[in-house]
């Protein structure tokens, strides 16, 4: 069973979100990277881009699949993980740390409430 840190929030589309004073770091879960297999490319949004919760904000690609990344909260993209350009495998190896994707300056605090807790996310993947 893959790791689901209790302190994070989750989207049903398998992104995780971590709030630090209104800046939300986004990545994909250990479960999601495992289902994708070895990632070969990560397409990230541009810094400055404004997204609404649920918007497409990137793509992760493995050899046999490609999957859209959705912004879990609304706001402006303020940072992207440039290390992924050369090392997409960070998402496989350390999905909750060095494998983060981008950061959003959140415009609607309440968006977080719409995300799943670790327990809820756990329940979702068990029922899949």
């Amino acid at each position: 069973m893959s790791e689901i840190p209790a302190e994070l929030r989750y989207a049903s589309s398998h992104e995780w979100a971590k709030n630090d004073d209104g800046t939300v770091t986004v990545g994909i879960t250990a479960h999601a990277q495992d289902a994708m297999g070895d990632l070969v490319y990560v397409e990230l949004p541009e810094v400055g881009q404004v997204v609404a919760a649920g918007d497409e904000a990137g793509v992760v690609e493995s050899v046999k699949a490609a999957s859209d990344i959705y912004a879990p909260v609304s706001g402006e993209i303020v940072a992207i993980n440039e290390a992924l350009e050369d090392e997409p495998e960070l998402v496989n190896n350390v999905p909750y740390e060095g494998g983060w994707l981008f950061k959003i300056a959140m415009s609607e605090e309440s968006d977080l409430d719409n995300l799943l807790t670790a327990d809820q996310y756990q329940a979702q993947i068990e029922s899949e």
């Binding site: 070895d38 070969v40 490319y41 690609e61 050899v63 997409p88 495998e89």
Partner: peptide, 12 residues
């Protein structure tokens, strides 16, 4: 002529 190929290397 070849064994299984490293697709991941080919793409990365």
């Amino acid at each position: 002529p070849v064994r299984r190929l490293d697709d991941v290397k080919a793409a990365r």
